[in-house]
């Protein structure tokens, strides 16, 4: 049940990302601030839920993004989100999951995400930046936007995940 609510939450977040957020970004900064709120929540899944959940969520919502904003190619967001969600779940599968660690994951994740997307577009010769330009132009500024979003949603999401895990434990005990 909780899983379904989470999917609904991510769907709403996805729609907000394309419709409400553009109004919040000042006109001159369009293209310089890249918003990946759904991806941040996928990373939370990787660390606090399970890597397979993160993989599936990443693949699904990445594909949704690819289809809804289909410009030149389908696939890069799906691939990157799935891969990084899974990696976050594998590498940070430790006992003590602190807030600082989660924020670190979000920073690195956002950086890797943009780098892989840049790589894919360069591979298909669709990009018009050099890597250094891309880094200064939008990768580093948007890392901080992701960080701020992660800070805002950390507490409620953490509670939510704890609740889900508590429920799961109960279920397994009853069984």
């Amino acid at each position: 049940m909780n899983r379904n609510w989470m999917i609904l939450f991510l769907l709403i977040l996805f729609f907000i990302e394309g419709s409400v957020v553009p109004h919040l970004i000042p006109d001159g900064w369009y293209g310089r601030i890249v918003v990946q709120f759904v991806f941040v929540v996928v990373l939370f899944h990787g660390v606090y839920a399970h890597r397979h959940t993160a993989l599936l969520m990443g693949l699904g919502f990445g594909l949704l993004h690819d289809i809804v904003y289909y410009g030149q190619i389908i696939g890069p967001h799906s691939f990157t989100m799935g891969l990084l969600g899974y990696l976050a779940g594998t590498v940070f599968n430790v006992r003590h999951k602190t807030m600082v660690m989660m924020l670190f994951v979000v920073l690195i994740g956002s950086f890797l995400y943009q780098t892989i997307i840049y790589g894919i577009y360069t591979l298909f010769s669709l990009s018009h930046f050099t890597y250094q330009q891309a880094l200064l132009d939008y990768i580093i500024p948007s890392m901080f936007v992701q960080l701020i979003f992660a800070l805002i949603v950390y507490v409620p999401l953490r509670k939510w995940f704890d609740m889900i895990q508590g429920n799961n434990k109960k279920d397994s005990e009853e069984a």
Partner: peptide, 15 residues
């Protein structure tokens, strides 16, 4: 306009 793509600087598109 129904939505703008703000997640990808290489694919600036809107619906």
């Amino acid at each position: 306009v129904t939505g703008l793509n703000v997640a990808d600087p290489f694919n600036q598109s809107l619906n």
